[in-house]
Amino acid sequence: MIQQDVLQVDNLKTYFHLEEGRTAKAVDDISFKISPGETVALVGESGSGKSISALSIMQLINKPGRIEGGKITLNGEEITNYNAKQMTKIRGNDIAMIFQEPMTALNPVFTIGNQITEIIRKHKKMNKQEAHQHAVDLLKLVGLSRAEEMMKEYPHQLSGGMRQRVMIAMAISCDPKLLIADEPTTALDVTIQAQILDLMKEMKERFEMALLLITHDVGVVSQYADRVMVMYGGQIVEESTVDVLLESPKHPYTQGLLASLPMVDKDVARLGTIKGTVPPAYDFPAGCRFSTRCPHVMEQCLSHNPSLSDIESEHKVRCHLYPSEVEE
C-alpha cells in the first residue's frame, strides 16, 4: 500500500487585491506533496511567496488577500472548503506552525504557562493539572530545564532562543502530523540557529512529523531537508531531492542562489549574488518571471512563461533552457 501523503497542495493561488485594481499574485498556482516524516524545504528570496503559501495552507490569509483557487488535502481529507470553526480543530492539532519572529510571536500579557496550556486544553481532553504537567514536560523536552518556573514567566523575561523553544514546545504539544516552520531561525543569533534547527529535527523524528521548512538560507537546506522546492515570483521554479539540487541545479535562479552561498571549500570568487531584485507581485514581467534577472534570457522567455516539467524523475524545472518543457 502506498503511504498517504500528509499534505497535498494542488494549484493553490492566493492573490492580494490592492488599490487601483491591482492584483498581487503572491502565490500563483503551486502544487506539491509532503509524505509522512519527510522534511521539505521551501527556499527563495524574500518576497517570493513562501510565507503566504504557508499561511494559505493554514487558511490564515487576511484581507485584502484571498485564496483564489486550488485544493488542499490533509491526510487524505480535503480541507479547502472547511469553515472557520472546522479550521480551528485543524490548526495547532493536525498542522502546527512556528514563525520567524520569536520576540513578537508570543502574547506579551499572558504567561508562558497560560499560552501552552491553552493550546493543550483546546485540542486534548486534559484537565488543568494534566495540561500543566504536559506543558512542563514539553518545556523540558525542548531543553528548557527551568520549566516549572518558566510556566509563571512572561515572554519578555526570556531570550529569543528560549522563546523559539517555547514556540516549538507549543507546536508539538498536540502531536501534529505536519509542522510548518517559517524561517524559524532567521531572527536568531548565528550560534543559536543550529541549536534550534537541531532541536526541530530531533522533535520531528521523535514525534514522526513531516516538516515544511521555509528558509531563504540554502545552507540550512543542505543540512536538514530531504527535498527542496525553489520558489520565485509566487511559483515553484525547481523541485528535486536535496542531493540532486545541490549537485546539479538546473534553473538559472537556483544556480544563482547556490552561487551566493559562501562555501568554505570553494573558491571565494564563486561568491556572488543574483543581480537585480524580485519584481513586485503585482507587476510580474510577461513570460518567465525571472527573465528580468536571468543571465540566459532568450527571446521566448519574454513572451512565454515556461511550465514546471520533469526533466528527469523527481526533478522538475520551470525554464525554457530544458528540452522536455511543454509551452503554456
Partner: peptide, 18 residues
Amino acid sequence: LGSDYIRTAKAKGMSDRS
C-alpha cells in the same frame, strides 16, 4: 489584530472568541 501574537493564537486553533 495585525500583530504576530494574534497570528500565533489563530495558528494554535484558538476560536474567534478567544
